[in-house]
Design a protein around this nucleic acid. Structure first.
Lengths: 354, 354
DNA sequence: TTGTTATGCGCAATCGCTTGCGCACGTATT
DNA sequence: AATACGTGCGCAAGCGATTGCGCATAACAA
C-alpha cells in the first residue's frame, strides 16, 4: 500500500504537507498547483490511509463502532443491521462489535479500538450496563448514540438517543381496532414487555371503553422461548374467548403469539376477521403470507436509519451541540386479519348462538 | 489506559521485556519472579494493548474480520451472526465489515484495517468478486476462510472453505418423504436455486422412482420478492395437485413457499399430512408454530460454527497447513406436516373419490 | 530602509508497541 | 586458564500518520 511518504517523494514535498492537504486541514496553505499534484498522485498511487498509524497518532480511530450487548433475537438483529447500514451512510467505515458482554473485557476491546463515534444498539442491554460504557466513552471524547434503548428518558446520559415509543406502537394497534368498531378487545401479552399494556389501557380510556380482557402470559417464560410462549398463548386465548364470547378482537404482543392465537380462534370454530379480528406486533417474516395475512405493527427501521444517519452526521460536523433525544413512531401494517366486515352484527349473531 | 511503559516503570524493567512476557514470546527469557511481577502489575493496572500501536508495529491487526458482500436476507444475516460468534470463540476480537461492495473502496477499507485472519461469509458474493479479495489478502499474508460459498470446489482459491451441500439438503427432504412411503412427490421451487432439483432427482433415481412432478416458479421473480413468489407458488401448487391427484407429498424450496403451498392444499379441501405431506427448507422463524408445524431442512449453523472455530484456531496456531475444504450437512427437522398416517390407503381413497 | 504580516512549506517529536541485536554475567567445556 | 555457550535483560530503530513550531520568501505598511 502506498504511504504518505511515497506521495511526498513523488511530488517533492514533505510528508506533513501531504497529510494536511489530504485531510483538508485548514492550515494546509499550499499553492493550488501543489495541492492538485498531491491529490492526483494520491489517486494514481491508490493511496488509502493506514488506519493503525492514524489511530495511533490521533489517539483513536476514524471509524464508527456499532455495538450490541448480547446475542439477539432476529428482530434486534434486523434492527442492528439497519443501524449498521445507517452508520455506513455517513461515509465512515463501520465496524461491528457484537456481544460486548462476552468475555470479561468486551469494553476493553472497545477502548483499545477506540472509535470516532459509537452507536449502542438495543438488545439485552440493561441500564446499569450501558451507563459505564457511555460515560467512559464520553470521558475519552467519543460521541455515543444509543438507539432504541429502554433507558428512561429522564435519566441524563451524556449521549444522543433514538428510541421507538412502544406505548405508541401498542396504542396504534388498539386504536385501529377501535376505529373498526370493536369495543371488546382482548390483550394477549407478556406483561413485562414495556408499553403493551399501557398502550392498550390508554386507547380504551380515551374512548371511554371500560371493558378489559387481559390474558397475561406466564412471566416465568423467557421472552425468546417461542415454543413455550406459543403453547401458553393458545391456552390463554381459549380461556379468554370461552369466558368472554363478546370479544371481537385480539391484540397480541408479537406475531408469533398472534399466529398461535389465530390457530386457536379457528379451532374454536370462529372465523378471522369475521368473528374475531387479530392484530400482532413485529411484522415478522411470515406475517404477510399466512392463510389470513396478519395486521401488525412494524418496527420503524427506516426512521431509525434516517435518524441515525442524521444524528451521526451532525456529531461528526460540529461536536458540541446539546444531546438530542429523538423518538420515532411505529407503523401499522393493515392486512386481512382486521378487514371490516360489519363487526357488530356478526358478533351479536355469535352471542345469540351461545 | 495503562501502557507497556507504565508497567515497565512500575516493575523496573524495560518496555521490551514487558512486551515479550505479555505476548508469551519464546525469547522472553526472564526469571519467574520478574515474569510474575509483570503479569501481576499488568493485571492491577488493567492493561490492555493499544490496538492501533500494535497494528502499526505488526503491519496488521490482531483481530479477525468477518466480511459480507451485500445487504442480506434474514437467513444469510442469521448465518453471518453465527459465524461472528464462532470467530469470537477463538478468543480474538472480531470486527464485522458489512457490505464490502458498498462504496467504491470497501476493499481498501479492509486493507487499511488489515486483520490477522479474515472470514468471508456468503450472501451475494459472486466468484469474480471473491477472488480478488482472497488473493489480495493472501498476498498480504492474511489467512482467509470462505464460508458457504457457492464457489465451485474445483476452483483453487488460496484459502480454507466451509460449505453446506445444498444438494444433500434437498436430498434429505425427499429421502424423508420416500421413507414415509411416498412415491408421487411434487417439487415446488425456483429452479435457479442450486441443488434443489438435483437432490430431488438424485433420491428418486436411487429408489427407482420415475415419476416427476416439477412446478418451477417464474425465474424472473427475484428470490427476495416473497410476495410474488408466494402468489406464484399458490398457483403452481393448485395446478400441480389438480392435474396430478396421485401426488401425496410436496417438497418446497423454502418455508415461505411451503406456507403458501399448505394454504392452497387446504383450500383444495385436502388435509396435511393425511392427504398431502409437505416439507419446506430453511426452518424459518415461524415454521414450528404453524397450524400444522412444518417439517423442514435446517441450515447447519452449529456445524458452521464448530468448523469455523476449528479452522480459524488451526490457522492461528500453525500458519502453513494445506488449504482445507470442509462440507457440512443440512439437518432434517421432523414435524407434523409429514407425520405418518398410512399414506397409501389415504391416497388411494382420494384417487377413487376423484 | 525597517518592521509587520501573510503565505508556503519542512523539521522533528510523538503516539504505543515489536523485535533484532548487543551487553553483562554465570556456568560448563576443553 | 581460556573459550564457549546459555541466561537475563536493555537499547534503539522502526511502523505511518499527525501537528506544533520554525524558517524562509514575498508583500505591504510605516
Amino acid at each position: 500500500m502506498a504511504t504518505l511518504r511515497d506521495i511526498a517523494d513523488e511530488v517533492g514535498v514533505a510528508v506533513s504537507t501531504v497529510s494536511r492537504v489530504l485531510n483538508g486541514s485548514p492550515d494546509a496553505r499550499v499553492t493550488d498547483e501543489v495541492r492538485e499534484r498531491i491529490i492526483a498522485t494520491a489517486e494514481r498511487l491508490r493511496y488509502h490511509p493506514n488506519h493503525y498509524a492514524r489511530g495511533l497518532a490521533l489517539g483513536r480511530g476514524s471509524h464508527i463502532s456499532v455495538c450490541t450487548w448480547v446475542a439477539m433475537t432476529h428482530h434486534s438483529a434486523h434492527r442492528a443491521r439497519a443501524i449498521r447500514q445507517a452508520a455506513s451512510d455517513t461515509g465512515c467505515p463501520v465496524v461491528t462489535l457484537d456481544g460486548l458482554s462476552h468475555g470479561r473485557d468486551g469494553i476493553r476491546v472497545l477502548l483499545s479500538h477506540l472509535p470516532m463515534a459509537c452507536v449502542l444498539v438495543s438488545g439485552g442491554w440493561r441500564p446499569y450496563q450501558m451507563e459505564p460504557v457511555v460515560t467512559t466513552l464520553h470521558e475519552r471524547g467519543v460521541h455515543c448514540l444509543v438507539v432504541d434503548s429502554s433507558w428512561p428518558l429522564d435519566r441524563a446520559l451524556p449521549c444522543d438517543t433514538i428510541r421507538a415509543d412502544r406505548t405508541q406502537g401498542a396504542a396504534l394497534a388498539v386504536e385501529h381496532l377501535v376505529e373498526r368498531g370493536h369495543r371488546h378487545i382482548g390483550l394477549i401479552s407478556l406483561l413485562q414487555i414495556t408499553g403493551r399494556l399501557e398502550g392498550y389501557e390508554q386507547v380504551l380510556d380515551r374512548h371511554g371503553i371500560t371493558e378489559r380482557y387481559i390474558a397475561p402470559l406466564d412471566p416465568d417464560i423467557p421472552y425468546e422461548n417461542d415454543v413455550a410462549l406459543t403453547e401458553c398463548a393458545r391456552e390463554q386465548t381459549r380461556d379468554l374467548l370461552e369466558e368472554n364470547p363478546q370479544i371481537t378482537a385480539l391484540f397480541c404482543s408479537s406475531d408469533v403469539l398472534a399466529l398461535a392465537a389465530m390457530e386457536m380462534v379457528r379451532e374454536l370454530g370462529l372465523r378471522i376477521p369475521d368473528d374475531v379480528a387479530v392484530v400482532g406486533f413485529d411484522n415478522d417474516t411470515f406475517s404477510g403470507f399466512l392463510p389470513v395475512p396478519l395486521t401488525t405493527i412494524e418496527h420503524p427501521l427506516d426512521e431509525f436509519r434516517e435518524a441515525t444517519t442524521r444524528l451521526l452526521r451532525a456529531r461528526l460536523d460540529d461536536d458540541d451541540g446539546p444531546w438530542r433525544r429523538e423518538i420515532v413512531d411505529y407503523r401499522l401494517i393493515e392486512r386481512a386479519s382486521t378487514a371490516s366486515v360489519g363487526k357488530l352484527e356478526v358478533s351479536s349473531a355469535r352471542l345469540s348462538a351461545e
